[in-house]
């Protein structure tokens, strides 16, 4: 039987900075090429989540201005449903500003503190516009090999006892530029600062998400391998370029 997956893309109109769209395109194509149907439900401000099943969540990065608007809507409308889904193992990928919104709180450079969903046990502090942003190519070592991409964030994230890092920074800043960690994983919830976009050049990550999304409803379905030679070329070239630009 051909599986059908339901992806909830939260606030696509507001949170789509830094090529986040590339992540959705990658998931869509990697499903289509295997005969899996991926239905993308775009949920904007004031809109309700689709009825179950929800198999995968994605939420992208943004500018600070949009983040404030989103924070309240997310907390008031979707907190409970998201918490139920993720505790049942539904995977969630949150990039940059959204990674921050899943944490305990975010203290921006100016304006009031934002209360996060508290799904990832961590917090983020923006040290002010005078402190340099964490910008540049980033290479991370994780359970699936390496992740390569680009980071650009002002906020510094500190993981607490309940959150494990996604990986270890080989090059770049990662969560805060101090402890050598990047991103977070809590159950099947992934938070990361890597964009660029994240998934096109890191197909192993994309396939892990699809694997986790399939597991509850299609436990026996095995993802067929794809020809990822171009992805590998781009991945390796980006690592070489990251090294060259550091030197």
């Amino acid at each position: 039987m051909r599986p059908t997956l339901h992806l909830v893309h939260l606030y696509p109109g507001l949170l789509n900075l830094y090529g986040d769209r590339g992540n959705i395109i990658t998931l869509q194509k990697r499903c289509a090429w295997r005969g899996i149907e991926l239905r993308v439900h775009q949920i904007g401000l004031g809109e309700s989540l689709p009825p179950d099943p929800v198999d995968l969540y994605f939420m992208g990065g943004d500018q600070d201005r949009e983040q404030t608007v989103v924070e309240r809507d997310l907390r008031e409308r979707h907190r409970e449903a998201i918490q139920n889904h993720v505790s049942a193992g539904v995977p969630f990928l949150a990039v940059c500003g959204s990674y921050q919104l899943l944490q305990q709180y975010y203290r921006p450079a100016e304006g009031p503190e934002l209360v996060g969903l508290g799904i990832i046990d961590a917090y983020t502090v923006h040290p002010g516009h005078d402190v340099p942003r964490c910008v540049g190519n980033i290479v991370v070592e994780w359970e699936g090999g390496t992740i390569v991409g680009f980071e650009n964030h002002g906020g510094r994230t500190y993981l607490q006892a309940g959150a494990a890092p996604l990986g270890r920074v080989i090059q770049g800043h990662g969560n805060n530029g101090e402890d050598g960690f990047e991103g977070a994983r809590t159950g099947n919830v992934f938070g990361t600062y890597v964009h660029g976009s994240l998934l096109p050049k890191n197909p192993a990550f994309a396939d892990l998400l699809l694997h986790l999304a399939l597991k509850p409803r299609y436990p026996d379905y095995e993802l067929e391998p794809l020809d990822d030679s171009l992805e590998a070329t781009a991945h390796d070239a980006a690592i070489r370029r990251a090294r060259a630009m550091r030197g």
């Binding site: 789509n16 830094y18 090529g19 986040d20 769209r21 590339g22 395109i25 910008v135 540049g136 190519n137 680009f150 650009n152 964009h195 660029g196 976009s197 096109p200 630009m245």
Partner: peptide, 9 residues
């Protein structure tokens, strides 16, 4: 620009 993510937009 060092960031090429814009091509996905």
């Amino acid at each position: 620009g060092h960031d090429v993510s814009w091509i996905w937009d």
